[in-house]
Design a protein around this nucleic acid. Structure first.
Length: 496
RNA sequence: GACCGGGUAGCUCAGCUGGUAGAGCAGCGGACUUUUAAUCCGCAGGUCGUGGGUUCGAGCCCCACCCCGGUCACCA
């Protein structure tokens, strides 16, 4: 910290000591509020609407952070903000007394938490204001807050010290209020449909259910490595097997991969499983759920997106993955039965692909490069290649494809779902194929989960399963282009 | 991991072709009893990301490193 920064802290510490010396506790244990700032504003508006006369005074005690001060000699205006809003308070020397007024002015800083009690009135310019008769310091601050007008712009500080970002930037607060409403709406939607919310282990002996590298940790007492989950899928299916016919979990999963505007190593995933449903049923569930969430959280099914808008009204566009890729690249992957053939067909497109990529990886490359960025309006792509879908059930009429869809919105994948594979023998074969890929160097291949296979052998009903990225959904609904803007504490490199 | 851009006062930002570091807000002192980014007068405040180098002289040029952002790679 520079001398200047230290000087600003010392000035505030001196004020703190002055308060203490005068017998004032700068950090009292409690303060009795009668109103939030919002309630106080409403109280006066309600009284005015009823035609109250100015003589019928409304007494309030409220508390908040000082966000602005206008000192005018014998009178000082202070803006107080709490979690509900902001109100102006008016402190006058002739009301508080010389000594008390001066003590306040000498000690207060922007950022301090202060309580004020008095009566409500409107200033000449119409601002609802508390005419203060008493004040109390509730928490003295020792560091200066970000600048009031431009807010906090430095993205590094915004992410590392998110509290400053929330303090200074109202639109940031709005995003996280929105995020909370989104999650609440999802829970309400699923609960109403008879889904049971459950929690499954974060620490797992082997991490399965998705193609991703896990984080490894170690349990000392058991002296064994454990993995942070990369998905909740395999445990939720065990619950379906156990007879909990509709289950869901909302929680963090951890994937040991790079960060980008679309990826954070830990993110929040919704997974749901419904017995006796297939992927067509899940598709309807997703579009209805997202529409419901938007209506609840935003009050509209139309969401601004740049100059255009996203229209979430069901039904969403549906097309097969095969059609989508052929329309945008001219390549029909069904006409290329092996990786070499497909790689040759892709050569003119100029995409870089690794020499070792299998046919499924190549198809996925076509999807993510040429199709996904163009899927702005909500769209379902159906019927994915078997080799990149080891947990999904085959299409009866085409054994190379599975009953799987992904949902896209704002050019990003937000959902992935399938008719779950419930044939234990086929699941075992699929795992063994994954094990071969892993042995060949694919760190993201599924591991054979023997315990899960035993569970499947006890019988799982036909089931439709879903994974939906909460962060990406919130990105689309809030118009954000970076996942860091919708995660309170995104992953950053540790700083000395 | 590669490439591009960025890091200057507590905050927001200027800083020319290399010539002794600037503003606004915040702070401190003063004036001020209807302000709303209050206003007015004055003052103070800098390891220019870090470390080397070139130069008479570096915020600016060169090298290395750190951190952030973006693109790519990675990531169904």
């Amino acid at each position: 910290m520079s001398d200047r920064g230290q000087e600003l802290i010392e000035q505030r510490q001196a004020k703190l000591e002055r308060l203490r010396a005068s017998g004032c506790d700068p950090y009292p244990a409690r303060y009795q509020r009668t109103h939030t700032t919002q309630e106080a504003v409403q109280a006066l508006q309600t009284a005015e609407d009823k035609g109250a006369t100015p003589q019928e005074e409304i007494e309030v005690s409220l508390a908040g952070r000082v966000t602005a001060m206008r000192l005018m000699g014998k009178r000082t205006f202070i803006d107080l903000r709490d979690g509900t809003g902001k109100i102006q308070t008016d402190l006058r020397e002739d009301v508080l007394g010389d000594e008390s007024y001066q003590a306040f002015v000498d000690a207060v800083d922007i950022g301090d938490f202060v309580g004020v009690s008095g009566t409500l009135f409107r200033t000449r310019s119409g601002e609802i204001t508390v005419h203060a008769r008493q004040y109390a310091f509730l928490a003295k601050t020792l560091r200066p807050p970000p600048e009031k007008w431009h807010g906090l712009q430095d993205v590094e500080v915004r992410y590392r010290q998110r509290y400053l970002d929330l303090m200074a930037n109202a639109p940031v607060r709005d995003i996280f209020h929105l995020r909370s409403r989104v999650v609440a709406a999802i829970r309400h939607f699923l609960n109403e449909r008879g889904f049971l919310e459950v929690e499954t282990p974060v620490l797992q002996p082997s991490a399965g259910g998705a193609a991703a590298k896990p984080f490894v940790t170690h349990h000392h007492a058991l002296d064994r490595d454990l993995y942070l989950r990369i998905a909740t899928e395999l445990h939720l299916k065990r619950l379906i097997i156990g007879g909990l016919d509709r289950v869901y979990e909302i929680g963090p999963v951890f994937r040991n991969e790079g960060v980008s505007t679309k990826h954070n190593p830990e993110y929040t995933l919704l997974e749901s499983y419904e017995a006796y449903a297939d992927y067509q049923d899940v598709m309807k569930l997703v579009e209805e759920m997202v529409a419901y969430v938007a209506q609840q959280a935003l009050g509209s099914l139309k969401v601004p997106y740049g100059d255009a808008e996203l229209d979430l009204t069901p039904p969403w566009q549906r097309l097969t993955l095969r059609q989508a890729i052929e329309e945008r690249t001219g390549i029909d992957f069904e006409a290329h039965a092996d990786a070499d053939s497909l790689r040759q067909a892709m050569a003119p497109l100029g995409v870089e692909v690794s020499e070792t990529a299998g046919r499924g990886k190549l198809i996925d490359e076509l999807l993510s490069t040429f199709v996904e960025p163009q899927l702005i309006q909500p769209t379902f792509l159906l019927d994915y290649p078997l080799e990149i879908s080891p947990l999904a059930k085959r299409k009866p009429e085409n054994p190379n494809l599975v009953e799987r869809f992904e949902g896209f919105l704002a050019g990003r994948e937000i959902a992935n779902a399938f008719s779950e594979l419930n044939d234990p023998q086929e699941q075992r074969e699929r795992f063994l194929e994954q094990a071969r890929l892993r042995a060949a160097g694919d760190e993201e291949a599924e591991t054979v989960d023997e315990d899960f296979l035993i569970a499947l052998e006890h019988g799982m009903p036909p089931t439709g399963g879903l994974g939906l990225g909460i962060d990406r959904l919130v990105m689309a609904l809030s118009g954000q282009q970076s996942i860091r803007e919708v995660i309170l504490f995104p992953q950053l490199r540790a700083k000395e």
